[in-house]
Simulated scan of single mutants.
Amino acid sequence: MTIAAKAAAAISARYSGPFPKVALVLGSGLGGFGETMQVTEAIPYAEIEGFPVSTVQGHAGRLLIGKAGAADVVCMQGRMHLYEGHPPASLAVAIRALRRLGVETLVLTNAAGGLRPDLTPGSLMAIEDHINLSGFNPLIGPNDEAVGPRFVDMTDAYDPALRALLGQAAAAQGVDLKRGVYLQVAGPNFETPAEIRAFRTLGADAVGMSTVPETLVARHCGMRVAAVSLITNLAAGIADHPLSHAETLSESAKAFGPMSRLITDFLGKL
């Protein structure tokens, strides 16, 4: 039995009802969304065999199963990052376990730094595409054809139909939803001004330390993906002050209302 299969079995042992078709991953400072859900079952990651455990402030590390508004959803209240020391392949376990349980659509959120003048703190950005400069990929290693193909097409990594639904949800909620390209670095340090200049030249609009591994794994196993970045700071060399994780959490809290309305409306449209 694979690690993902063992994790799926551990979840099934705690929750035997019909499993949601939609999974939501909450990024830094966004864990409060989980507290707004009608939760049927809450399972700490540490109690799920094979799940890496979140260690970062702002990531509770619980799997929540229940409703967000009228939508059935399984929610990862906190994620795992490469910079925590998890082997890249271990980041695939949670997504593959959820896929085994019947999840078809993955909705990702993150906190990110803005690289455009209009992506100021508090802005929301639908991810249209990504650039992986982390140096890692959770798909490296032997491939299980029963899970997905050796070589995965990433042309529409972020599903166009889901992005259209995000736009509709934003309009319905009066939320200004921008669009752009997300670039992932490994972290945990923030980027240098020279790196930010290089990233802008490459075509990136926002930069962060997550999301791409989950997208790669989800697409590999046939899941549709949508993703939204909450811009918590202007990137190094653009901001006029030193960057900190405290600012990330503070700005996430300030923008929680619009993000919560957007995600709730979007989930209801799926």
Rank of each mutant, 00 (worst) to 15 (best):
D159E: 13
E251C: 03
E84Q: 12
G29W: 01
A13M: 00
V228Y: 11
L230S: 13
S123V: 05
V207Q: 08
A227R: 04
V225E: 04
H81N: 10
A46C: 02
I65H: 11
K67D: 06
L243W: 11
D129T: 13
D265K: 15
K178F: 01
T109R: 03
L162Y: 00
F136I: 00
F33T: 02
A204F: 10
G187D: 00
A71K: 03
A164P: 00
K6E: 14
G85S: 12
L82H: 14
A206H: 00
N132P: 02
S12R: 15
Q168I: 03
A10G: 12
R150V: 11
A68Q: 14
V152R: 04
M259N: 01
M1Q: 07
G222R: 09
A60F: 01
Q38S: 13
R179H: 14
P18D: 11
G27D: 11
D176I: 13
L26R: 00
A7Y: 04
V22F: 02
M259E: 00
V225C: 09
S244Q: 11
V212S: 01
G34V: 07
A9W: 04
L243E: 08
S28W: 02
P18V: 04
V25I: 15
P18Y: 12
I196P: 06
P160F: 06
R163Q: 06
A171Q: 14
A146K: 13
V56I: 14
G187T: 01
L177Q: 06
L26K: 00
L101M: 11
G113L: 05
H81M: 02
A23Q: 06
A7K: 03
